[in-house]
Design a protein around this nucleic acid. Sequence first.
DNA 1: CTTAAAACCTAGAGTTCCTAGGAAAGGCGG
DNA 2: CCGCCTTTCCTAGGAACTCTAGGTTTTAAG
Lengths: 195, 195
Amino acid sequence: MVRAGLTTAKLTEAAAEMADEVGLDRVTVSALARHFGVKDASLYSHIKNLRELRVRIALLGGAEMTDRIAAAVAGRAGKDALVAFADAYRQYALAHPGRYAATQLQFTPEEITDSAVVRRSAELTYGMLRAYGLAEPDLTDAARLLRAAFHGYIHLELGGGFGHARTVQESWDRSLDALHVLLENWPARPDRSPR
Amino acid sequence: MVRAGLTTAKLTEAAAEMADEVGLDRVTVSALARHFGVKDASLYSHIKNLRELRVRIALLGGAEMTDRIAAAVAGRAGKDALVAFADAYRQYALAHPGRYAATQLQFTPEEITDSAVVRRSAELTYGMLRAYGLAEPDLTDAARLLRAAFHGYIHLELGGGFGHARTVQESWDRSLDALHVLLENWPARPDRSPR
DNA sequence: CTTAAAACCTAGAGTTCCTAGGAAAGGCGG
DNA sequence: CCGCCTTTCCTAGGAACTCTAGGTTTTAAG
C-alpha cells in the first residue's frame, strides 16, 4: 500500500484550500483525512488537534497576505500606497475567504508569539501611513481605524451584508478616497477630553 | 414531574445569555437541554435545528441593539448623533458579545426577510447621517464605511487584536472625531474615475 | 370528563474529535 | 543483506454532539 506521505505543511495547505472552497467551519479533521484517503487518527501525528490546524491556516494566510501587501506598496507613498495596500488586502481576502476567516480567529498570545506575521503586518501599516506625517498617538489611532475599516468592509462584503443597488467596488473606491482625505486632515487633539 | 414549560422565546433568551457568557460556538442543543434539565430531543419541538437557534439569537440581539441605538440618537443630530450611535453600538456589542457575534453570521435572504431588524437598522444609519447633507450615492458609501468601521473596531477589540499600549476607548473617541470631520468634508465625486 | 394539542420522553443513527496502543514502511549502520 | 529504529499509518473505542421517528404524559379547552 502506497503511503500518502503526509506532513504538517501538506495538511495545512490542503486545509487552507478546503477552507477557501467550502468555508472554514467545514474544514474538519475527518474531511481532511478523507481527502487524503487516510483515517482520522492518522492526522494526529502531524497536528495536535483541530485548533492547531486552524491556527496554521491562519498563519499561512497571514503570511501570504502580508507578502501580497508588501509587494503592492513597495515604492509607493501617500494615496498610492493607501490604495495599493487596501486593494491588495481586499483582493486577497476575497480570493481566499477561508484563509482570511482563519486570520480573524481569536488567538492566545502563545499561538502567535513565535510568528513574525503580526509584527510584519504592523510594520507595513505604519510604513504606509508614514507619508501622512502623523505622530503618536494619532498614528496608532489612525492605524486602528484603517484596520477596522478594511476588515469591516471585507467582513460585511463576504457576509453579504451589503445590498446590491450600488456595487461594493464603487463604494470601496470612494471610501478609500475619503480615508485618504481623512488621513490628510486628521483632526488636532483636544488638550483635555471634552467628552 | 414538573415541566420546564419551554417556549421558543425562552429557549432563545437562555441561548443568548449562554452565548454572552461562554461564547456563541459553545451554545449547543445539548448544553441548552442540560440547562433546562431536559433531553436534547425535547428542544426540537420548539426549534427546527441548531441553525435556527443561532439565527434567533441574532435577531434578538439585532432588535435589542437597534432599540438601544434608537434611544441613544433620539433628539440628536450631527456629531452628537454620530457619537451616540457609535457608543451605543459599541457598548451593546461589548456587553453582549455572544449576541453580537450571532448578528455577524451569514444569513440567507429567507432567514431575515420577515424581520424588520435590517430595515430599521438601515433607517437609523441614514437618519444619523442626515445632518451631514450627503446625497446618493455618497450617502450609501458613507453608510457602508461607517458600518464597516464600527464593526471592524468591535471585532478587533473583542478578538484582542489591539495592543494595550493605548486604550481602545481613547482610540475609539479619536476615530469618531476623525469620522465626523470626514463626513463634514466628504470628498467631491470625480466626473470620471481617475484610477 | 373527554379529547386533542402540546410538551416531553426513549431509542438510536450518524458525525465528529481525540486517545491508546499496535503494525508496517522506509532509512540507516553494521 | 539484515536487524533496528523512527516515522507513518492503522484498529478500536470513548465521549460529545445533531437530529429523526415514534411513543407517552401533561395540560387545557370544550
